[in-house]
Structures are given as structure tokens and as C-alpha cells.
Design a protein around this nucleic acid. Structure first.
Lengths: 142, 142
DNA sequence: TGCTATCTTCATATTCATATGATGAATGTG
DNA sequence: CACATTCATCATATGAATATGAAGATAGCA
């Protein structure tokens, strides 16, 4: 599995929010039930995304989570970053902390191209690409 | 990290065996020391590779592990397979057990190409590509 | 102000990958 | 056959990811 369970939950939750009709906050309980995911665990994950500014949360009645910006401006890498370090040492196939053109692991030269494709995918794919964004929301995006 | 620590140890050990001079078996202790890897843990990993027929082991004095075939005929995927399920559910970015063209996850269409490149890399890269194979050994390969 | 709804946080449990240590089984050599 | 050498296996420990449960904090509303 290339992504942790945590990142997968995060992505699915953000997709869910992107697909939500209207601008009302969505409660953790509703997302957790829709995704069949543990409630408190998801709560902690969404809180993580709130800290990085990807989501906004409000407490109390009518509270919940909303996307902080349009789905088209949220990259997959933005969602994953708080939980999985894809760019760092994970970039080396053999897990070396230091692996570069100057100081390569045995797989470096051949893995580099593939690795860059993976990272390009994560950087170029947005939530709009993955979600069925409602027409009214898509129309508002710039 | 795309690969488990276990797979990484396995790859590094097989590279070490491919680079070994001569055809004498190499002891676990020597490999473990060269790789700075826990001895008994590595032993279990090498045993796993022996069970799939990638390595051959002999016990007693002068015993140890040797490659069961030429490095050029050992694919990266052969080494990883016993420990990481790359082809199976790991193929789906969102971790779904069932994810196919007919029953796709939200990321399926876009992830498919990248995923196939990863798998092609693992299937097309051999230990000869990764190791500094000694000349005498390389010359023997067909 | 008090109540409810909701996110936030803390404490703890479970599971799995990773790792360690000790013992068992096989093999070659004298 | 006795012994040393080596892989094989078992029992257990550790740490991180995953998950659960309960209490705390904040916001809106009557």
C-alpha cells in the first residue's frame, strides 16, 4: 500500500466534503457514517487537515467541517502531506535517508523516473479531478 | 515508503549475494553484518526467499545462502512478492479490495497509468541491473 | 444563564510490522 | 560417533499505526 490508512481516510473525507451540496458544514458523524470509518479516528484526521489550513471547522450547533478552498485548488499531495512523507526519505525505494544523484542507492537511477511520476501525479491531481463536484460549486470556482 | 522494511532488507540481501565473489554460500551472519541488519530477522526473510525458490540454503559448516539463478533472471518483483502485495489490493490508491475499470474508485482512472509504471518497473528491473555483478559471474549468465 | 450540539483532547486498547533471544535440526569433519 | 557450524523455528518483546471511549471546550439558542 503506497499510502497509509490515515491518508486514505483523509482523501475520502475531503472528496466527501467536495461532493457535499451547499456550503453548510458537514458533521464528523455524518462523514464517518458515509465512509464507514471510525468516528473519533476520523475526527483526529480532520483536525490535522484543519491545522494545515485545508479545512475549516466550527463547533456547536450547525457546526462541522468545510473545505477552506475550492476542490480544484486542493491537490492530493496537500491532503496526504500531514500524514505521509512522500517527498522525503520515502522517495528512495530502498528507504535510505540520503539518496540523491550524487549519493545514490543501487536502485536510484532506475527508480528516479518512476518516483517522479508518482510525485507528479500527487501534485497535479486535485480534488476536483476525483470528486463529483456539484454544478453550483464548480460554477463558483475560478 | 512504498516498500516494507522487510522487502527492503530482502532486496539489499539479494544484491549482496549477487555481488558476492565465487559460488560459495554466504552466511546469514556475514550478510547481516554487511547490511547492518538484525541477524535473526534477516534469517527469517532469507528463509522466505528460499521457500519461493529464489535462494538455496545449506546448513552446517561452509553452509549459507546462494542465489538459485543468475541475477539477470531475478526480478525486483520476485524479491518483493513474498512480503509485499504490490499487484493486489495495493494497486488501488485508496486501498479498496475491489477496484477495476468496471468498478473503479474515484482515483482509479488517473492512478492506473502511474500504478502500471510502478509495476512495470518492478517487473522489468533485475538484480543484475541493481548489483555490481562480478565479471566472472556475469560472463556465466545466458 | 443553562442546555444541547459539536469539535477537541486525553487516556487507553488493539493490531501488526519489526525485532530479539533461545532452542532445535541438519550437515560436514575429524 | 562426537562435535562444531550453520540454518530453522519458537517464544516473546517493542514500537508505531490504527482504533476506541470518555471527558473537555466552545458556540449557538431558548
Amino acid at each position: 500500500m503506497i499510502l497509509s490508512q490515515t491518508s486514505i481516510y483523509a482523501i475520502r473525507a475531503v472528496i466527501h466534503l467536495a461532493e457535499a451540496e451547499g456550503d453548510d458544514p458537514v458533521r464528523v458523524d455524518d462523514i464517518a457514517e458515509a465512509l464507514k470509518v471510525p468516528r473519533n479516528y476520523l475526527s483526529k484526521i480532520l483536525h490535522g487537515l484543519t491545522r494545515t489550513g485545508l479545512l475549516e471547522s466550527t463547533r456547536g450547533p450547525k457546526g462541522g467541517f468545510v473545505l477552506a478552498r475550492a476542490p480544484g485548488r486542493i491537490r492530493l499531495s496537500d491532503v496526504i502531506e500531514p500524514f505521509d512523507d512522500i517527498a522525503g526519505s520515502s522517495g528512495c525505494l530502498l528507504g535510505r535517508a540520503r539518496c540523491s544523484d550524487a549519493n545514490p542507492c543501487p536502485a536510484h537511477a532506475r527508480w528516479r523516473d518512476v518516483s517522479m511520476q508518482v510525485r507528479a501525479f500527487l501534485a497535479n491531481t486535485t480534488m476536483e479531478d476525483l470528486a463529483n463536484v456539484p454544478a453550483n460549486r464548480a460554477a463558483l470556482e475560478v
